[in-house]
């Protein structure tokens, strides 16, 4: 065997410059790992009111209630519904801590977005809180309004938006957290979604974890080889990462196609029959439809 070159012997590699701060690669890898964890989470327990409902009933009911929430303008009704979601989550023995994080985070985020809507420049009305008045401030060529107040109409509008967004997000979460994802996709068929599309969603979900894992491994592999500033920078990594992910996608896609063909796939999709509807499914769907009708009537 030929002798090893001098630079290959241990102890001869030059020291790399120090790279302070958390690498964006590590952050990216962590985000992907978190998504992997969310995807690989085991199916929700069969106990609990919501989990026992047929996915189709949940799809119908959830959709009716979300549309009803969109139609409603009464903040009291929205607030009641919002609290109701929390009670339903607790009663159905769903992971409450995760729900609370969402239950609090969504209104907070909406409130920040809606803050400018409380001001009189956006929503005129009776002033409730005067921020400043009789001012003549300028920022460059822009002169700020001489008075800025928070109006009652503004608060009402912002509050209604915040509650409505939070209620819709909570309803969607309740349906998703109490149903295994693929059952949820199959449940969409009751809305008229074609089977081919449902199968596309199911296949996509099946291989999502594989691709997220691949992307995660790409980040780690790159991280383990990062000793100094990289030529081309972070964008070059993203381009290479996305490109090689596409290669993996393409070859995996081809293999899956061949495997499906080999087992008799001819373009038509056939799925096993879904479980039968029970009394509670009828009850839940009808109640939600009634809620929607009521919201429509009193919109």
């Amino acid at each position: 065997m030929t002798a090893l070159p001098a630079w290959l012997r241990p102890g001869t590699s030059p020291l790399a410059p120090h790279r302070p701060g958390r690498s964006h690669l590590r952050r990216g890898a962590e985000a992907l790992a978190a998504r992997l964890g969310a995807l690989a989470r085991p199916a929700p327990p069969p106990s609990g009111f919501l989990a026992a409902l047929d996915p189709r009933a949940k799809v119908i009911g959830g959709l009716c209630l979300i549309v009803a929430a969109t139609l409603t303008g009464q903040p009291l009704v929205l607030a009641l519904g919002y609290t109701g979601c929390l009670l339903l989550a607790a009663w159905s023995r769903l992971p409450l801590r995760r729900f609370l994080a969402l239950w609090l985070a969504v209104p907070l985020f909406s409130a920040v977005v809606m803050l400018p809507a409380t001001l009189d420049v956006v929503t005129p009305g009776h002033p409730l809180l005067v921020l400043w008045h009789d001012a003549a401030w300028r920022i460059g060529a822009w002169r700020l309004p001489s008075a800025l107040t928070v109006t009652d109409a503004g608060l009402l509008a912002a509050g209604r938006m915040v509650l409505r967004t939070a209620l819709c997000a909570s309803l969607a979460w309740l349906v998703a957290a109490s149903t295994p994802p693929v059952r949820l996709f199959y449940g969409l068929r009751v809305l008229g979604v074609p089977s081919a599309f449902v199968m596309t969603l199911a296949l996509m979900h099946r291989y999502l974890a594989v691709l997220v894992q691949a992307a995660h491994d790409l980040h780690l592999a790159r991280l383990s080889r990062t000793v100094g500033p990289s030529p081309g920078g972070a964008l070059a990594f993203v381009a290479a990462g996305v490109g090689s992910l596409f290669r993996r996608t393409h070859s995996l896609g081809r293999s899956v196609c061949l495997a499906m063909l080999s087992r008799g796939y001819r373009g038509e999709v056939r799925l096993l029959d879904a479980p039968r509807w029970q009394a509670q499914d009828w009850l839940a769907s009808l109640t939600c439809c009634l809620a929607l009708a009521a919201a429509w009537w009193w919109r």
Binding site: A31, A215, V242, T249, V256, C257, M260
Partner: peptide, 19 residues
């Protein structure tokens, strides 16, 4: 045709890349 589903998964993961 099943390549579409993987293309969808690819799209999903691309949206997760940090730039």
């Amino acid at each position: 045709v099943p390549l579409l589903a993987l293309g969808a998964a690819f799209t999903f993961v691309v949206m997760m890349f940090n730039v």
